[in-house]
């Protein structure tokens, strides 16, 4: 199992940023999610985030909403998410689950942490779990030996950044912009400033997500961040592809472009 610590140490040694890819479980199909993630890993993604599809994704833009909706219609359950993690972890990538809080809450924090660790997952990203409400999840995760990643945002005050990074292990997720997920024409300039402010409070790697869609943007973000997170841009290509194989090929091309980007720090 590759840990986040290994991933970021390796990237640092190679003087590059890590590439993190996001795909929801069960999209485009239960099997297809594993093979798509494997294609991302082969193309150079160091870390894979597997999304746990949720009925009310209020942080997500239309692209991820669409994919998640299809996944739920496909009947994706938590057991499928865990099987997906298992399949992806087998490729050698550090594999996380990204999820809204309620599914874990309902499944049981300790049980989820244990089952995720059992599937080879290395941690979670929980975008709507605030530091104030996070204690039970951090305790369960620590007991299971998995990392807890939380988000800071451009609007975060210094005090909030400190509160959030104090809850993080593995890395800190810096949301590049005020808004929902989705590729954008340009990566918000606020991202660089946020990374700088975050570093003042932690030695953990800081990864930037939201709005990254091209190799050029990846290179730009790699210039100041430890990791570049890409989700909607991959999913868009899969949604637009005529079939799963074509989708896989298409995201492979984009991931290679991104992988080159994180290696040519702008």
């Amino acid at each position: 199992m590759t840990t986040l610590q290994t991933v970021f140490a390796t990237a640092k040694a190679e003087n590059r940023a890590a590439l993190v890819g996001y795909l929801p479980a069960g999209f485009p199909s239960k099997e297809g999610a594993v093979t798509a993630a494997a294609a991302l890993v082969e193309a150079g993604c160091d870390v894979i985030e597997i999304g746990l599809p949720y009925s009310d994704p209020l942080m997500d833009g239309p692209t991820i909403q669409d994919a998640v909706h299809r996944s739920l219609v496909n009947g994706t359950r938590i057991a499928d998410v865990l099987r997906t993690v298992e399949g992806v972890a087998a490729t050698g990538a550090a594999t996380l689950v990204m999820t809204y809080w309620n599914p874990i809450d309902r499944y049981g924090a300790e049980r989820f942490a244990r089952d995720l660790a059992g599937a080879g997952g290395v941690g979670t990203i929980t975008p709507d779990l605030t530091p104030e409400e996070s204690e039970p999840w951090r305790a369960a995760s620590a007991a299971a030996g998995i990392d807890t990643v939380f988000l800071v945002a451009p609007s975060s005050t210094e005090a909030r950044i400190k509160a959030v990074v104090d809850c993080c292990t593995g890395f800190v997720y810096a949301a590049s912009l005020m808004g929902v997920t989705g590729a954008r024409e340009t990566v918000n300039v606020a991202a660089e400033d946020l990374v700088k402010r975050t570093r003042a409070h932690t030695a953990l790697p800081v990864c930037v997500g939201l709005g990254v869609g091209t190799g050029k943007q990846a290179a730009e973000v790699a210039g100041y961040a430890d990791g570049v997170i890409v989700g909607s841009a991959f999913i868009r290509r899969m949604l637009d592809a005529p079939d799963e194989a074509a989708g896989r090929e298409s995201i492979g091309v984009l991931a290679r472009e991104m992988a080159a980007g994180v290696r040519s720090r702008a």
């Binding site: 709507d128 409400e133 988000l151 609007s155 975060s156 909030r160 949301a175 005020m178």
Partner: peptide
């Protein structure tokens, strides 16, 4: 009660 929202909304 409490708050289960993206960090971006906390300052607001």
């Amino acid at each position: 009660g409490g708050r289960y929202v993206p960090e971006a909304l906390i300052p607001a």
